[in-house]
Computed example of a mutant assay.
Amino acid sequence: MTDSTDSAPEAPAGVDTEKPSSARVYDWYLGGTQNWAVDREFGKRLEEQWPHVKPGARHNREFMNRAVRAALDAGIRQFLDLGSGVPTAGNVHEVIREELGDGPDAERATVVYVDYEAVATAHATLILERQGATGWAGHVQEDLRNPKAIFHHPTTRRLIDFDQPVCLLMMAVLHFVGPDDDPDGLVKTYRDRLAPGSWLALSQMSVGGTTGEEAEGVRNFAAQYRNTQNPVWLRDREEIERWIDGWTLLEPGVTHLPDWRPDRELTAREAKARPFAWCFVAQKP
């Protein structure tokens, strides 16, 4: 992945490129190309306040990539990605293409991306069309807090068979779900819809056991979002472990993002971002 600096990709019709988008800012954190100067400037301001944001975002994306590969190795061929943002910079359908190929004889898998932002929908539609992936990957514009609408959306019904195992991805998205939205009940609704053998791969921002300036730094970062349309809620390990509830926790258990089946060494800068999220992958019995 390479950093975008002055690139200006083609804007999908109707997308406002004068205001920052959280989906495109996250794309910039990841080194993607679907972002504009306004997104990069917003991201840089946040990075100045909390320097771990960019390596933390990449930890999250790499964890997702490893979880998707592990699910493919286990034979799962359906993926539902909640809060997906812009599907670029190493997203699910790209990992599947790398692992399974894309020729006429390639083994097939399906992906449904879900994000409520119109910006993410517009970019996703353009990207999937240009990459020729619309036959097996699609996007649903919906809030993850409305699971019934997601389950019954025509794109979901076309691409996902809930009678077969699904890998449900909840990557760095539940920290946008506050206590008034009943996150425990929401996770249970999704878990209950899945067939036995399904996986839940989940990550969540956290103070991560840090104290002093480090803990204050991540709390201040989260506070920057409290007055936006995407307020951030940090949670500790014990809160996250409730979402496993009766499922089989896969090795190595609940860990920080780069510690879940790592496949490379971290730089010193990357290692400093390690504590600020928890993750796990669990299987439905």
Rank of each mutant, 00 (worst) to 15 (best):
I96H: 06
I96K: 07
R97Q: 09
E98Q: 10
E99Q: 12
E99Y: 04
L100S: 12
L100W: 07
G101P: 15
G101I: 08
G101S: 12
G103S: 11
G103I: 03
P104I: 06
P104H: 04
D105Y: 04
A106C: 14
A106S: 15
A106V: 08
A106K: 12
E107Y: 02
V111H: 00
V112H: 09
V114H: 01
D115M: 12
D115L: 13
A118Q: 14
V119K: 10
V119Y: 05
A120K: 14
T121G: 11
T121L: 15
T121R: 15
A122K: 14
H123T: 07
I127T: 07
L128N: 03
L128K: 08
L128C: 05
E129T: 06
E129V: 05
R130C: 01
R130P: 06
A137L: 09
Q141E: 10
E142I: 03
D143V: 04
L144K: 11
R145E: 08
N146H: 15
N146W: 00
K148S: 13
K148C: 10
I150P: 07
F151G: 03
H152Y: 08
T155D: 05
T155R: 03
T155P: 05
R157A: 03
R158C: 05
L159Q: 10
L159A: 09
D161N: 15
F162K: 11
D163G: 14
D163C: 05
V166R: 10
C167K: 01
C167V: 00
M170L: 15
M171G: 05
M171W: 00
F176I: 04
V177N: 09
G178T: 08
P179D: 02
P179A: 00
D181Q: 10
D182A: 00
P183Y: 04
D184S: 12
D184H: 10
D184R: 14
G185W: 06
G185Y: 05
G185F: 06
G185D: 08
K188G: 00
K188W: 02
T189E: 15
T189V: 14
T189P: 15
Y190I: 02
Y190R: 13
R191Y: 02
D192V: 03
R193T: 07
P196L: 07
G197Y: 01
S198F: 01
S198H: 01
S198D: 11
L200H: 04
L200C: 11
A201L: 00
L202P: 09
L202C: 12
S203Q: 05
Q204M: 07
Q204V: 02
G208N: 08
G209R: 14
T210N: 08
T210W: 02
G212K: 09
G212Q: 08
G212I: 03
E214N: 10
A215E: 07
G217I: 00
G217S: 13
V218N: 11
V218D: 11
R219E: 11
N220C: 10
A222H: 04
A222M: 00
